[in-house]
Design a binder for these strands. Structure first.
Lengths: 215, 215
DNA sequence: TTCCGCTTCAAACGGCCGTTTGAATTTCGG
DNA sequence: CCGAAATTCAAACGGCCGTTTGAAGCGGAA
């Protein structure tokens, strides 16, 4: 039995335990994935009892669901971009704005890197919890990317061409954000501070806009 | 104790068991990753005894090493591209050749999809076996991508710009190959036969060459 | 102070894990 | 066909897994 539907207000102690468990679970799941991350390790890092996971969250999956909720919340904060804002800009500026927004996690890496790793795990083998979680929310990054490329492509472009171009654009920032940890090490050694981020936006915008021949 | 250093020639039966185990291990590791894939499931699919893994390969890690050897071998076959061949082509044709070569797994998917999934697992959390395996072989795809972009970029381009552009190009085919299974499902529903592959090469080549503004 | 519900806790449960063991079986040169 | 080596096999080992259990600790209302 869990306490999920009890009426009492949460005591300080309760909230402390819950918070510590979610925080520890975030790092453990980021490190080892959902299947690979153990409740024992989580409760050990949170300095809590093993049974606390089942008591407060109903089980390992319930705890993971809380982590996913927090992860998407943090992401919406850091990478929020209004679709209509894109339409109000020139195509070139819409492109730059799109790239900048979705490359932002590069410099806020400490805060969102764990969430990025969790999403990376899910991209290899989606857990049931995750699948159910994102079932009814289409990835915003694709929607916005399509809006940007439509500003450039001719009206008679085939649906396939639009999809190709949309995916082509969408995965450009995704790659750098996802692989940031690897790119920070040799042989690349790319460290992304604010200036480097601007240079990356410039380079990607130039390449996407005019291609290799126009750099 | 294993039979790894015995002098006898492999019997038909030995080779049958080894082959069946490697094949089963490939599908299991592709599905669940190295940590998540169990020896019990592998030997069950191979219709072999659990102890056979330790007897023939010295353990789970030895079997995984064989899978990685086979995976890279299959990859070098399917995506081999001579660096000097790129230099002999015009920049435009070198770009097309590069994209075509590294998008090839899209249509040979049945043969290499399992290997792609294994590499995807390793990209999230490299196993010790994998790290040791690739320690002294730089990813060919990056080397070739740099060769291509250098044909286009001005001589005085900064090292950082070259790296950005190289990564930008390298991950374009990687994305489509890695995400092919997801792209085959709604809402994208992209099926890659030979014709679709050519159209994708065309689109990516045009976008990379002249950018969004030049399509 | 007594009581009662919330929370913590140590221990145990059943299950799957990779590996080891030692005997049974098969293979193959002599 | 015999005997030794190679291979297969069922069983067991110790360890980690998520979850359950029931008692103990705790805090606020009566």
């Amino acid at each position: 039995m869990s306490n999920l539907d009890q009426g009492r207000v949460a005591t300080r102690s309760t909230e402390t335990t819950r918070t510590a468990l979610i925080k520890a679970a975030t790092s453990v799941f980021a490190e080892y994935g959902y299947d690979g991350g153990s409740v024992r390790l989580i409760t050990q890092r949170a300095i809590a009892n093993q049974a606390a996971v089942n008591y407060h969250f109903g089980g390992k999956d319930g705890l993971y669901r809380e982590v996913l909720i927090e992860a998407t919340r943090a992401f919406e904060e850091n990478a929020f971009l209004d679709p209509e804002e894109l339409d109000s800009l020139s195509p070139e500026n819409a492109l730059r704005r799109y790239l900048h927004q979705f490359l932002l996690p590069l410099v806020k890496r400490d805060r969102v890197s764990r969430y990025l790793r969790i999403f990376a795990w899910e991209s290899v083998r989606p857990s049931e919890v995750f699948s159910a979680f994102v079932a009814h929310s289409p990835p915003r990054i694709f929607v916005l990317a399509e809006r940007v490329v439509r500003r450039f492509l001719p009206r008679d472009a085939s649906a396939e061409t639009v999809t190709f171009a949309m995916l082509w654009l969408a995965q450009q920032p995704m790659f750098f954000v996802r692989e940031a940890e690897r790119l920070a090490q040799p042989p690349f050694s790319l460290k992304f501070d604010d200036d480097a981020l601007e240079r990356l936006v410039d380079t990607l915008a130039a390449l996407s806009l005019r291609g290799l021949a126009g750099v």
